[in-house]
């Protein structure tokens, strides 16, 4: 008993540095934001307690919901492509049939090392409708240039940037998972005459399921929190990428343009709840499918 409690104390000591940072940088601001969301600070009249009024307003706020719809739409457009690409890259590199696998792995991963701000500026140049690189190429080929950041094209164009940025990151997670699997099964399958595709489909992908779901959870959070890419590109397409394009942009705008810090906190919390629900749903689906896999 005495021994156990001493272990307990050592454990606490080990997690203490993390806990201190965690509490100071996450829990405290979170609680404080939650506190703020029940107040209102007006330019005239100052601060007053408004109870759940901000939440009621947000619940009826078209700008918030349209932004949320957009990021959900974004999730369905972007994430399947990205995860499928990441999975294929991971399997191909893992198959050992590539020359220079390390080089290819690095090349796919490099965009993740580019800060999102820089990526947005770079792609903004490529997308430029008059003098952007893609427009110049289409002029050279005498084909009409595409307005990448106009109308319905905007969301796919941003999805393309996000995919470019994060496909390598997801690939690394899946590839690392693949590397951790025992090769016994692979050998047994090859003995039974399985080819590379069969090996991937019947052996590797089923085992990869937890890693894929992990990537999916990250992607849910990432999609709902979409901010940097559309925000940086606002000067390129101000009519479409407006102040409520995504919930995060809306929260930022409420805080720093409209000076409604409290309402911004409310929007952030609403978004937080939405992420929580979506992530739990993905978790639930994941558990169900794992159960089914075991039962089969």
């Amino acid at each position: 008993m005495a021994k156990r409690s001493r272990h307990g104390k050592a454990g606490l000591l080990f997690v203490a540095p993390f806990m201190v940072v965690f509490v100071l940088t996450l829990v405290v601001p979170l609680v404080y934001s939650g506190y703020l969301s029940f107040f209102r600070n007006r330019l005239v009249g100052g601060i007053s307690f408004v109870g759940t009024k901000n939440y009621i307003q947000a619940f009826h706020d078209h700008a918030f919901w349209s932004g949320l719809e957009r990021v959900v739409g974004f999730f369905f457009i972007q994430v399947p492509f990205m995860l499928a690409a990441a999975l294929i890259f991971a399997l191909v590199i893992d198959s050992g049939k590539l020359r220079f696998p390390k080089l290819i792995r690095i090349l796919i991963f490099i965009p993740y090392a580019v800060p999102a701000v820089i990526a947005a500026i770079m792609w903004g140049y490529l997308y430029g409708p008059n003098f952007g690189l893609l427009a110049q190429i289409s002029r050279y080929l005498h084909t009409p240039s595409i307005h990448f950041l106009n109308g319905w094209m905007t969301l796919p164009s941003i999805a393309n940037i996000v995919t470019w940025e994060y496909v390598g990151y997801n690939m690394i997670i899946m590839y690392a998972a693949l590397k951790s699997f025992s090769t016994d099964l692979y050998e047994a399958a090859s003995m039974d005459g399985a080819n590379g595709f069969q090996l991937a489909w019947h052996i590797k992908i089923p085992q990869l399921r937890p890693a894929i779901f992990l990537c999916l959870i990250f992607s849910v959070i990432g999609s709902f929190q979409l901010f940097t890419e559309p925000y940086q590109m606002t000067p390129l397409s101000p009519a479409v990428l407006n102040n409520s394009f995504t919930p995060n942009i809306y929260a930022y705008d409420e805080a720093f343009v409209s000076q409604n810090i409290n309402y911004a906190a409310t929007i952030s919390f609403m978004l937080g709840f939405a992420v929580l629900i979506a992530a739990s749903f993905v978790g639930l689906v994941s558990r169900q499918s794992r159960k089914r896999a075991v039962n089969v």
Partner: peptide, 25 residues
């Protein structure tokens, strides 16, 4: 140009509002 990433957002809003010490008009 408002180049702030959202990571800085909570921290900033924390500082921004203080504990309700809005200067008088």
């Amino acid at each position: 140009q408002k180049k702030k990433i959202i990571g800085a957002f909570l921290a900033t809003s924390l500082v921004c509002v203080g504990f309700g010490l809005q200067p008088a008009s």
